[in-house]
Design a protein around this nucleic acid. Structure first.
Lengths: 182, 182
DNA sequence: ACTAAACCGTGAAGCTGTAGACGGGTCAAT
DNA sequence: ATTGACCCGTCTACAGCTTCACGGTTTAGT
């Protein structure tokens, strides 16, 4: 049986966090000592391990409780979170390029946090890719992971609309090895 | 002169948000009507436009006030935020791959939100890149934008340590057109 | 002149997840 | 018994808003 601060240290959490989890009925200690201290069992410990990993994946306390309460196989919450992460990343990339433009850090030689379209193309060219190869590459990207392709394009600071256009002609290009290849 | 709700609609904000900005002394109306209504001038409107764009870039209310109060050229807050965004993106990418592994969505044919190392390499190969070309490309990436290179590698689900290793041999590889080229 | 709808101000409370302060309890060594 | 170091439970605060409640004001229409 662990007391609250011991358990907190064991998992690298703060005591407040465990108190909060108790309050929110996410993890309640299975017993109390005579003095009213919370006592956590081995079972509680296992549950906490699961909680920590879901929280690391960015689930809210409520979502975590939902996943743990529904018997295994309830993946809808996870899927929702995965989609949300994609959106968050894209939003941050927009912020990144907004700031980079404000600072004009890129052009002034400071080492950039993010890469823009021109730099990206230049790097691929340095590695020997030509226009045709890049087309093939975009087509492959669109075929295998359209969402990730979109995120990637925004990551280069390409605006929403232009990204759409690129994706459309990527999709239109003949897929590399589909059965429908003319 | 605008009244509070008019201004809010004009900028796609809620009345409450503007009340909050007033309370926090981020944007105070330059006048009041006889009945005590807040009246915003054209100057206020311009300030709000600036505020909105800084907030979109993820600055806190306090940071935004700091940037606006210091006369132009105070870029340290912006730089700090830019670095923070990079860290946030990397953290989200880790979450993304954590979840993808939990769901095993990748292998089961669902279209993935994120791309892993194998898929990435396969796409470059499909576009005609060989091992040597990839080395050149990593070296270029590391040379031009080390931070972004790191973020990129984590984005492929490559763990921190391995990313370090890749970056080290990228840096060691002879840069394409540095003056030191052997 | 009057009424109803839409506005305004102020103030308070709530939200998430965590950090910290407060006063009192426990325990080993003296 | 007492000191000191730690621990406990409870309560409050933080950002950045939103929502609610209360009562006064403006505006349009009759």
């Amino acid at each position: 049986m662990y007391r609250i601060s011991q358990l907190a240290r064991k998992f690298g959490l703060s005591r407040s966090t465990l108190l909060y989890y108790d309050q929110e009925r996410l993890l309640s200690p299975s017993g109390r000592s005579e003095a009213g201290y919370r006592l956590y069992s081995e079972t509680d410990l296992e549950r906490l391990a699961a909680i920590v990993s879901f929280r690391k994946a960015g689930l809210s306390v409520e979502e975590t409780r939902a996943v743990l309460e529904s018997q295994e196989g309830e993946t809808s919450v996870l899927r929702k979170r995965l989609a949300a992460i994609g959106a968050e990343i894209r939003a941050l990339q927009v912020q990144q390029h907004l700031l980079a433009r404000m600072l004009r850090v890129q052009s002034e030689g400071g080492l950039p946090e993010s890469v823009d379209k021109e730099t990206w193309v230049a790097m691929l060219r340095a590695a020997g890719m030509d226009d045709k190869a890049m087309e093939t590459w975009h087509a492959e990207f669109e075929r295998r992971a359209p969402q990730a392709h979109h995120t990637f394009l925004l990551g280069l600071g390409i605006p929403e609309q232009e990204a759409q256009v690129i994706r459309e002609w990527s999709a239109a290009a003949a897929p590399a090895r589909s059965s429908r290849t003319r």
